[in-house]
């Protein structure tokens, strides 16, 4: 029976691609999955625009206007949107800048920091504008499931995706629940 393949889109916002790497870590099982899923917009493909998909995986928190736009695009196109990893869910390591004012951060990096040459804060319109803080994705759009971990293990990804192949709700095993 030729089943319809589940369309999955993925993206990394303010993240380190570690979650994507971990996802790829499911190794040979990826081949199994391959019969059942296909990738839409994702760093794994070269599709630049998200079109209607069944599942969207979001890695990384929301640190700039561009992140917000991508996240909204995913929300608009994905039936189920999943926050993957500590950064998406809590802001994670990039959110360490949240303890400072944005101005302080930028001044430290571009004006006053050690080894700064040609001190000036970049203002090119090509650059995504920074938000005052790094936000968890669920503060910006509705998220359907969360997969914590830094990164979540390959097994955790499987536990998340496999049930959904059959339209089931995923349930993370207790031993897969960790925040680091």
């Amino acid at each position: 029976m030729a089943e319809r393949k589940l369309k999955i889109a993925t993206t990394s916002l303010a993240g380190c691609f570690g979650c994507h790497m971990s996802f790829l870590d499911i190794d040979e099982k990826l081949m199994l999955l391959n019969d059942r899923i296909e990738f839409n917009r994702s760093p794994l493909t070269d599709i630049k625009q998200c079109s209607p998909s069944d599942i969207g995986l979001i890695e990384g928190g929301v640190c700039n206007a561009d992140n917000v736009r991508v996240l909204r695009e995913f929300r608009a196109n994905c039936t189920i949107l999943i926050a993957v990893g500590a950064c998406a869910i809590t802001g994670g390591v990039p959110a360490m800048r949240n303890y400072f004012d944005l101005r302080e951060c930028l001044e430290e990096v571009y004006l006053n920091g050690t080894g700064v040459t040609n001190p000036q804060i970049p203002s090119d319109t090509e650059l995504p504008l920074l938000l005052d803080k790094v936000y968890p994705v669920q503060e910006v759009v509705k998220i359907d499931y969360f997969l914590p971990g830094c990164p979540p293990s390959a097994d955790a990804f499987l536990q998340l995706l496999v049930p959904q192949l059959d339209g089931q709700k995923p349930q993370l095993a207790a031993d897969q629940l960790h925040y680091d």
């Binding site: 869910i89 809590t90 949240n98 303890y99 936000y135 968890p136 503060e139 499931y145």
Partner: peptide, 10 residues
């Protein structure tokens, strides 16, 4: 699974 409330960032 997540922290639910708005972060205070103290």
């Amino acid at each position: 699974l997540e922290e639910h409330f708005h972060q205070f960032n103290p």
